[in-house]
Nucleic acid binder design. Structure first.
Length: 282
DNA sequence: GCTTACCTGTCG
DNA sequence: CGACAGGTAAGC
């Protein structure tokens, strides 16, 4: 579900309420969301104080501590339909609520996930997250370097969290459309200037979405249960059959196994020998 | 590369 | 009823 702007909005909501709060109790209603040891997860949070919540890509990183110092980081990943809600402890518990954290305040943290693609885990300090640079970095040149020289279709590379962390199906389609690049185009063949433009478009579209609380296409809500405002600003995602700003008709196709939206007029299809061969039949 | 699997819900 | 859904991992 949530991509970088939605996760960023959630992290901001968590940081508004949780730092300084102590975990009073933990109700793990569906232990299947825990990766690794369930006991390790319980003890990582039991009695801990929340210092702050960070984000890298789509990963939410809760930093706990106690009297003795900092404790291992707890990572939340929201998968496709995950939600983190701050709600009054006396409010009824909604369906698909898998984890409840109670704090020394009226509101508790609830992790809901209808499809259960999300997870939580305790990070071992030694093992690094295998993620590329955060896609919303101000270091545009770092983004450029992470992508430069890689091989593969643009869409596939941008969805690969180990190359760049935080983009998903919506914002990949939006960023490619903004700079007139076809999702099937080969990354390694891109002129440097066009790759730089792509990095700029990624930064821009993520920032614009964060500014209005992300995109609620179906399930996404922030920690207060509010929907994001970016859906009406999407230029291509979910708009198959509608006209692009250029007047072309937006098409839907499958690229890298994902539903993909393309304007055939402003996103030129690739012209590589391989691509031409494969599509000569039609 | 593509397909499948993990899940539940919604839409046509 | 099948197709599809904001993600990731694993299998040819």
């Amino acid at each position: 579900m949530p991509e970088l702007p939605e996760v960023e909005t959630i992290v901001r909501g968590l940081n508004r309420g949780l730092p300084g709060r102590r975990v009073l109790s933990l109700d793990l209603r569906f232990p299947g969301i825990v990766r690794g040891s369930v006991e390790g997860f319980r003890s990582a949070l039991a009695g801990a104080r929340v210092d702050k919540i960070d984000r890298h890509g789509k990963s939410i990183l809760l930093r706990p501590s106690d009297e003795k110092g900092s404790r291992p980081t707890v990572r939340f990943h929201l998968g496709m339909t995950g939600q983190l809600l701050l709600v009054r402890a006396d409010a009824p518990v909604a369906s698909h609520t898998h984890l409840v954290l109670r704090f020394d305040e009226e509101r508790e943290l609830r992790f809901r996930d209808m499809r259960r693609f999300g997870w939580v885990e305790v990070l071992e300090a030694a093992r690094p997250l295998r993620l590329g640079p955060d896609a919303w970095t101000t270091d545009i040149d770092g983004l450029f370097q992470a992508l430069r020289g890689r091989r593969g279709m643009l869409k596939h590379a941008l969805l690969n969290q180990a190359i760049v962390a935080g983009l998903g199906n919506i914002y990949v389609d939006e960023a490619l459309h903004r700079c007139g690049l076809h999702p099937r185009r080969e990354l390694s063949g891109l002129p440097a200037a066009r790759l730089r433009a792509l990095c700029g478009a990624i930064r821009a579209v993520l920032g614009e979405s964060i500014a209005v609380g992300g995109t609620s296409f179906r399930n996404y809500v922030d920690t207060e249960g509010s929907r994001g405002g970016f859906k009406g600003r999407l230029r291509i995602y979910g708009r198959a059959g509608l006209p692009c700003a250029c007047g072309g008709l937006i098409r839907r196709m499958v690229v890298a196994g994902r539903g993909t939206h393309v304007c055939p007029r402003c996103q030129r299809p690739p012209r590589s020998a391989k691509f031409v061969l494969r599509h000569q039949k039609d």
